[in-house]
Amino acid sequence: MDHQSATAPLLDVRDLRTWFHTFSGTVKAVDGVSFTLAPGEVMGLVGESGGGKSVVGFSLLGLIDPPGRIEGGEILLDGEDIARASEERLRRIRGREIAMIFQDPMTSLNPVKTVGAQMDEMLRLHTDLDEGARKARCVAMLESVGISRAAERLRAYPHQFSGGMRQRVVIAIALLASPRLIVADEPTTALDVTIQSQILKLMRKRIAETGAAMILVTHDLAVVSEMVDKIVVLYCGRVVETGPAREVIANPSHPYTRGLVDSIPNPKHRKPRLAQIPGAVPDIRNLPSGCSFRPRCPRAQARCAEVSPALAPTRGTLSAACHFPILEEVAAAMATTGGERA
């Protein structure tokens, strides 16, 4: 606490391990993830599908269901370890301290309840406002996320809204109880491309206004690059690289991040073929020895099969879990791995 008190973190996740005990073995979906988040900070949690990003998000809210379990580590919210909090305590944290925005707005709203009822529920749970005040707040919130005729729309059902509108409603619900942290799990993945940037802009604006911190879970580096202050890259349940967003995207030091960055289409440097990371995410129940990324890594050497690399400072403000990090700075477009074929 002492020397850090100036920037006391809102959230301090230490060595989080969330495992799923299935019949076919233990899935270590999150295996030793640590990061901190300052008040108002926006963080991108990036990785391929199956990398454990969403599990981190659900762990923060205590929404891991059996056979899953938080096996170890700490989730310190203002210094309180909520990884071990009672269900009673967690219910007071959910929505009020940490709110969540889900991936698919077509399924995250209850089809048989009006939008108004679903918004009102959040306020009923977390505020002492009377009915009139709650309604006024709901109307104001709907308007603030760009939904017109809000008072009327409160009586509408989710199926009467388009996908983009529904996600606006979901964002409005998440913001209603003024949480200090918002976990957005792929909030634009299920939307049309044309709507995606609208929703992202809206989220950035509204969240900046409220001063909340945010964790943006996504597989899309292009999405986070515009929005976040810092990036945590996950691979097979572990943090492989972390650092300020600009630096991670411009000059990543981990080969995996490099591969992710290279696979973003860049209109300025048209290549006949877009770079891709060879291979696929390994079966998480049966990870390769040493570094999990080794089989797909262009820089892998014998040592990578033997010792699992720990997260350590690599270059400048970056940290990566790699025995042979990329130490030279390269322009993002000058791809090093796999991109120069053809």
Binding site: L61, L63, R91, R92, R94, F102, P111, L125
Partner: peptide
């Protein structure tokens, strides 16, 4: 998802 979303609200 809406069940999980309801839980995430603290219901």
């Amino acid at each position: 998802d809406y069940i999980k979303f309801a839980r995430a609200k603290g219901a």
